[in-house]
Amino acid sequence: MNEAMLLLFIGILFLLFIAILFYPEKGLLEIFKKSRYANQKVLLEDALKFLYDCEYNNIPCTLNSIAGNLNISADTAAEIVSKLQNMGLLNANRDFLLLTSEGKSYALRIIRVHRLYEKFLADETSMNEKEWHKAAEEVEHKLSDEEVNKLAAQIGNPVFDPHGDPIPTSKGEIPEKAGKHLNEMEPGEMATIIHIEDEPHTIYSQIVAEGLYAGMQVRMIESNEKRVKFEANGEECILSPLIAKSITVGPIKLEKPVEGKLKTLSSLKVGEKGIVLGIAKSLRGQQRRRLMDLGIVPGTEIEAELESISGDPVAYRVRGTTVALRKNQSEKIYLVKEEEKN
């Protein structure tokens, strides 16, 4: 074996070693990071949050439901409850668990961080929607008040998180709960999705996979114990009542509810024109604002002008300017095609 061969071999081994250490998601470093997490403080805070959620939604809360929600044994749950009691955050007796006002404001603080952080992830980063919750679960136990307020200021002190939930203010104010569950709607009734519960994760990801999001308009077709059938932005959708329960709807805010099947900007072929109807709610924050700044608001005439080599991005003609957009944006802009209008 000559020297070059040997060196090459060593080099390849070395690269392999680096790869095993740093490989995305499956590398040793990542595995190590994931393994250390979860301690007492985290559990206490998660329990508080859960208790608050129960109270807010008027659902009775028991030791078992706590254990189930936090994924711990009933014994540990009892331990945690007594700890919370000792800390003066919780009033408990045989029948009910009730947060004290300190407990409430503590819980609201955690919720504030969680929702703010989700909002931040949704607006400012391009993290996948399914990962927001997990990331926020970690961060909510770590940020100090000061850091939280700074974060809030940086993203324009939002009052709603990306799921449509109100974000408590730094003083712990939060509006009364509004709306009802999706499966409680009457056939023919129209409403706007105002909230999608992000726990448990399995259900949430199913909802996301259906393409449903807060702000979407729905019209109920039928709802019974077996299935909930409804129309969302013109597309028919069927969910099990269990899943539908995770969706909260409220009255329609817009003046003109949108009916019928909608075309998206991405469906325009080069040379075709359309009139913008609106931008999907799932396009948020800065990205949404930038589109509107560029003149893409309801009523704008828009024409597909130029396709790039792989068909994405596409350049559109808007108000005398040419603007290139990626598909993940153009498929969230609704319009009617020009000839259909006539």
Binding site: M127, N128, L306, P313, V323, L325, Q329
Partner: peptide
């Protein structure tokens, strides 16, 4: 690509670019 999958995890965000005349 490497950074997007490790240290700076995330997907490509939206992008708009004006093509000037």
């Amino acid at each position: 690509w490497f950074l997007s999958r490790t240290l700076l995890k995330g997907e490509a965000s939206a992008f708009s670019l004006e093509l000037p005349p």
